[in-house]
Write a protein that binds this DNA or RNA. Structure first.
Length: 378
DNA sequence: AACTCCCGCCAAGTC
DNA sequence: GACTTGGCGGGAGTT
């Protein structure tokens, strides 16, 4: 409730500023979301609350929440309710994703086709033979219903996010081009419209992941094709970086996501015939690293913005319900403790190593961020 | 013109 | 049946 009524929604025309896409970006919205809820006293988050405080439609909250959940920052508690896990949960989630990705990979022994993606089960087979499938857990398995459900799940933003992240954590790839990612996540037999859709989603995901600084958008050095660089496990070792890439979209100085609609003409319906889904749950990461690395062999390290400000927004109207500003000061995580708590039982050295990388990376990331964080609504 | 990606329709799922 | 989730792709804003 408490949404501004039509009178306050200011037609674009009554305001001096034009519609700006950037003000409405998912990345910015995500940053807003994060700065709004990343505080000590937050336990659970209501979607309606988030939507109204951030001044956006609920639909957008789903987008954010789905990817945040995929990397462990949130956990769904109930309808409309999520638990805030925080950034501290990310290393663990990433480690799990990696483990999962690697073990999936083991099932697909052979493999030199790096771009191969296999769907969890062949849908067609399942339709014809529902009862023989080796169902794992779901209570209501075997029904056509669960099939469509799985089908839906296969295409979900959450799963796509996880697979996207796995691309990085399961390989050594530091940079993956948009094209490659789409291909990798889709498999070979893609039709162009399906591909386009996937790419749109990738943009969505990338925007929220980059607002968390898990990745950053760049492009390949050679082709200048759009690409994503993984930042999640970079330690302080990687000090520097480069001049800032000013072409990069910068979130962060805007205020809210509320209020300006682009004037949409009108929607017409078109009986779309969607391409048929050939989704996937499993990807081979094995050769990915090599392949991608080869491909990016010498990516320049044009890096961008060091100067990112985490959460400069002013969540709209409602503004910090009774939370004293002093609360904006972040907690200081006990990283050592965190590490030992979360350190999984890896028998595998590589994973163990990776894990400590995460911890290191997040330590420095966090201190950097919390140090300069300015939550003030300017 | 190509690239990005916001926006909201509407189907699937849940309560 | 109302409400919640979220796939999807048209088409507008950016580069």
């Amino acid at each position: 409730m408490a949404l501004p009524s039509s009178s306050t929604l200011a037609e674009p025309s009554t305001r001096h500023h034009a519609y700006s896409r950037k003000q409405k970006s998912l990345g910015l919205l995500c940053s807003n979301f994060l700065s709004l809820y990343d505080r000590d006293d937050v336990r659970s988050i209501g979607l309606d609350d988030a939507a109204s405080r951030l001044g956006v439609e609920r639909r957008r909250i789903y987008d954010i929440v789905n990817v945040l959940e995929s990397v462990g920052v949130l956990a769904r508690k109930a309808k409309n309710q999520y638990n805030w896990k925080g950034f501290a949960a990310i290393p663990k989630a990433l480690a799990e994703l990696k483990e999962e990705g690697l073990s999936e990979n083991i099932n697909t022994i052979d493999g030199n086709d790096y771009a191969k993606v296999s769907d969890d089960e062949d849908e067609d087979d399942m339709y014809s033979n529902p009862s023989t499938g080796s169902q794992n857990d779901k209570p209501n398995t075997g029904s056509a219903k669960s099939l469509t459900k799985d089908n839906r799940r296969e295409k979900s933003l959450a799963l796509l996010t996880q697979n996207f992240v796995k691309l990085f954590v399961c390989s050594n790839a530091e940079l993956i081009s948009l094209d490659d990612a789409a291909r990798l996540l889709l498999g070979d037999g893609h039709n162009s419209s399906l591909m386009r859709t996937k790419v749109r989603r990738l943009y969505d995901i990338a925007n929220v992941l980059s607002s968390m600084k898990l990745i950053e958008k760049t492009h390949t050095s050679d082709t200048r094709k759009p690409a994503f660089r993984w930042l999640g496990c970079r330690g302080k070792a990687d000090n520097v970086s480069v001049p800032n890439d000013s072409r990069k979209r910068v979130f962060g100085s805007d205020v809210t996501n509320i209020s300006f609609k682009r004037n949409k003409v009108d929607s017409l319906f078109d009986g779309n015939s969607k391409g048929d889904p050939k989704a996937q749950n499993q990807i081979k990461y094995g050769n990915l690293g090599d392949e991608v690395e080869r491909r990016n062999l010498e990516h320049d390290s044009r890096q961008s913005s060091k100067n990112y400000q985490f959460g400069p927004f002013g969540p709209t109207s409602v503004a910090k319900v009774g939370v004293p500003e002093s609360n904006n000061v972040k907690r200081v995580y006990d990283w050592e403790n965190l590490a030992s708590t979360y350190r999984p039982q890896y028998q595998n050295e590589a994973l163990k190593d990776l894990f400590s990388h995460y911890v290191e990376a997040w330590k420095s990331w966090y201190s950097e961020v919390s140090g300069k964080k300015s939550l003030q609504i300017s």
